[in-house]
Write a protein that binds this DNA or RNA. Sequence first.
DNA 1: ATGTTC
Length: 476
Amino acid sequence: MDLKRFDRAAECEWRIAAHGAMRVPAVIFASESLMRDMDDKVFEQITNVASLPGIVTAAYAMPDAHWGYGFPIGGVAAFDPDDGGVISAGGVGFDISCGVRTLHTGVTESDVRRVQVRLADRLFARIPAGVGSTGALRFAPRELDTILAGGARWAVEQGYGRPDDLARIEERGCVADAAPDAVSDAAKRRQRDEMGTLGSGNHYLEVQVVTDTYDARLAEAFSIERGEVLVSIHCGSRGLGHQIGTDYLREMAISAKQQGITLPDRELACARIDSSLGQRYLGAMRAAINCALANRQILTHITRQVFADVIPDAALSLLYDVSHNTCKVEQHVVGGEARRVFVHRKGATRAFGPGHPDLPEALRDAGQPVLIGGSMGTASYILAGSAGAMQRSFGSACHGAGRGMSRHEAAKRWNGRSVIDELAARGILIRSLSARGVAEEAPGAYHDVGAVVDAAELAGLARKVARLEPLVCVKG
DNA sequence: ATGTTC
């Protein structure tokens, strides 16, 4: 990206003053090196977002930002319903509430190394992964409505997990005001056999070891120690969320035209938050959030069963669960006063700072765990949300490494089998049904996740707590 | 991300 188009406000903060149709400035948080590598499309898309009605303060892009549908992936934007603010299906994304949850295991790397192959094989046998994968569970439409209203809370009531898991999930496992009635029958049909499945693309279940901790106080608050094994599950709302995105994008494109909302890009189709379409989308999107939370909860239950069998000493407890693709109603201080705004985070993680009332008591002094998934075979990081994020980015931070190469290009460049063999030689076991999928997800297709989290920290959005390396990875 | 092309 051409850096001359920006005002450098700080080492990792690049501003674009409002001009043309922009209602507010745009801000990218990144190092100079990440900025140089960043797709020009991010500049175009973030300035487009800044022109949407009712946007508050600024449009933001995180250090891992790249080209997305309408909004960049790694985009954050807040809208005020009392100022004509909008909700955009493209601003949430197709994989609604895709996210990561990380579990403690209480065992060490050597405990896993002893049984590593069996653990990899058993997880792969039990965790359905891949395009169109189906699970062991089947739900009639009415049961699905209960899931869409109840989220992880429903799952725990059904015996998938423990009541104390819920405090460690955003919204305590169930987002309010979900509207299963606003979800099409087609979306529900697609989901009836996909609960408890991982999906494809960059989704994974990974067994990881803590290689480094950076802040002793925060590591202790998160109960993280070097050498401990963790499990991270990265997946979303599967076919249901995708179908909701498709359904409402179509409807928003038609309605925006009728309402005279001028769009710089038709992919930014949106509806006023206070319109009936806006409210229906919000209800459907919240149903998809609950679907994703229930999905990750069921996968947690299966993972616990596998560990109980292969490593009986392990005790899996939830560190935290974050969502990456959402729009949430939150209170933020804008121009010195508390305002209720609708925060779109697309490929961005909520990163609430210390003292936030939505955090469970055990984590409140430390700040929210921010779980950063690396690319396959590379490190992941755990950060802590900060007061800086509350001031600078509506309580948001980055979400991952950020793709640097298209799937097509990666599939041409790498051979899946070779990628698996090379990682196995480094002690990392990959299990996947799709060699092409593995090639598309080759570590070289992504930016350096370490550079991304360093930039997030330097920008004042989050504090580094721990670095993890993979031991086993089940891929879609 | 996605019954990987409405």
